[in-house]
Design a protein around this nucleic acid. Sequence first.
RNA 1: GCCGCUAUCGUCUAACGGUUAGGACAUAUGAUUCUCAAUCAUAUAACCGGGGUCCGAUUCCCCGUAGCGGUACCA
Length: 540
Amino acid sequence: MRTPEENIQLANMLFPEVKETPEDIEKKYPKRELKKGEMVLRFAPSPTGFLHIGSVFVSLIDRILTNQKGGTFILRIEDTDKTREVEGGINMIVKGLEGFGISFDEGMTGDDKSKGEYGPYLQSKRLDIYKVYAKDMIVNGNAYPCFITEEELGEIRKKQEEMGVRTGYYGNWAKWRNASLEEIQQKLNNGEKFAIRLYSTGNMENSFKMQDLIKGNVTLRENDVDTILLKSDGYPTYHFAHPIDDTLMGITLVTRADEWFASLPLHVELFKKLGFELPQYCHFSPLQKLDNEGKSRRKLSKRKDPEADVQYYIDHGYPKEGVKEYLLNVANSNFYDWKVQNPGKISTGFVLKLEKFNKSGALFDIVKLDDMCKDYIATLTAQQVYDMALEWAEVYNKNIAELLKNNREYCINIFNIEREGNKIRKDLVKFEDISTQLDIFFDELLEKEPVDDISEKVSKEKQVEILKEYIQVYDTNDDQTQWFEKVKVLASKLGYEKVGDVAMVIRVALTHRTKSPDLYQVMKVMGKEKVMQRLEKYIG
RNA sequence: GCCGCUAUCGUCUAACGGUUAGGACAUAUGAUUCUCAAUCAUAUAACCGGGGUCCGAUUCCCCGUAGCGGUACCA
C-alpha cells in the first residue's frame, strides 16, 4: 500500500496537466430539478454504422417512459472504441430513430450537432472530464497505472487456467497494484503506454442485494477485478464512462441491454469509489432467434440476421407504427389487450410497466410482426396507404414511385378496393407488397401470359363462350348484387353448377391470375374500356 | 471452468397456493353472394426433472438439468 502522499505524487506524475478537481467539474453540471416521478433516461449507442432493431426497442421504451412520467430523454454517443467507429454513424442513428418517431430532448442531433446543457454528449469530447476523475481516483488510492503487456496478460491467464483458478486481473495477480513509484517513473521515462486500473477492494466471497426494476431483487457477488478505467489511448472504457456521464447528466434510471447486468457489481463499486449516488437500473433481455434448425437460441446478430438491422424494415417498407406495436407487444404482452380495447389510439398512449417485461430473452417472431403490420395497414385509409407507399417508393422503388405519382387517383382507387365497409382486405404487410396489388391494373406490369390452371376444368373453347356471353351482359351501372346475379344467371344458362367456375374464367381473363381481390370492385376501378380490352384480347 | 439471470402450448405470454391452466400468433378443418387475403366457428397443443413446505403446489424453498448473458485496453 502506498501512503496518501505517494498517491498524490503518483497522480501528478501521471497527469501533470490535469488541474481541475471533480468539484470543479460538478459545478458545471447543476443538479436537475425534477418533479416527483420525473425521470431522466438516456440511450447511449456506439456509432458503428448499424442500427440494431434492439436499439429501436430500448429507445422506444425509454421514450414512452419519459413521455408517461415526464422528464428528459437524452441521446449520448459512446464513441470510445476508435477501431469500430464508422463515419456518419451518428447521423444514421438519429435519422433511423427519427424514422420511428423517436426523438430526444437532449443530446446529439447529428454527426457534429447537439442540444442541451449537460454535454458534451459525445464521449470523445469528454476525455478531459474522465482524466480529472481518473486522477482523483489515484489520489484516493482507488486506481493505479498498469504497464502490463498483452503477452504478460496471456501468461497470467495460462497460469490461472493451469491452476484451475478464476482468470482475470485481480488480487495478487494484479502485479502493478503496488508497484514502486521508481518503477513507474522508469516506465514513464521510457515513454511506455499505460492504462489506469481500478484498485478493487471487493471480495468475491461477499454477496449483496440490489434491485433491478425488471428482474426484481437480485443477489450479486462483489467485484474484485482491477478493471481498466482509462485505456492507454486515453479513452475511457464503458465501465468508467458510465458512472461519470450518467451522474453528471443526472440520469435517474439506467436502461440498458442485459449483457451489462453481469458488470453491475463493478459499476456499483465504481459509483461508491467515485462518491456518486447509485441510480436505478433495469436490464432488458435480448431479442433472440432460433438457430441450428431450431435447436438453440441466440441473440439476433447483425452478421447472420438481416432482420436485426433496422434498415431491413425500412428497405421493405414495413409500416413504422406496426413495427413499434410489435415491439411494444414484446415489451408488455398485455399491449394486445390494450389495443383491442383502445382501437385507433396511437401506440404511445399505452402505459408501459417495467415489472411486466419478460426476464429472459424473447424470440423475435417475424411472423407475428407481419401479422401486426397487416392489421395496422388495414386500419389506414386508401389515401394514407397511398401517401405512405409513395414516401417509401420514392427512396426504395423509383419505378413504383413514378407509377404512383402519374396515376394518383387511379392508385388511390386501387388501394380502396375492399378497404371500406365491414369486410376490410388484409393482404398488405409492408409497402413493398403494393406492387402485387397494382400489377393487374397496369398493362405494362400485367403478367404477360394468363395462368393456364383452369383449362382442365373449363376448356379453352368454353372459356371463350363464357366471356362472349359475359360481354353481352356486362354493364358498368350494375351494383354489386346485380352484377353477381348476372354471373349466376350466366352460370346456370351455360350449365355450370358453381358460379365460381364462371367467375374464375372472368378473373383469369382480366387479371391473368387465379387470385385477385373482389372481381366486381376490380372491374369498377379498372373502368369499362380496360375491362373490355382485356376480355376481348383473351377471346382472341 | 467460474459468476449471474431465466425456465408454462411450436412462438409470445396470463395465472400473484385451490382454475376444465386463459389469450394472441402459427397450424388443421369448416362456414362465407366468386378466387385469394381477411372474418367467424371449431380443433390440435404447455406447467423442464427430482426432492421438500403445505390440507393443497405451475405458483414458495432446495438440488439437478437446460437456455441465455458475462468472464476484453468492445460496447
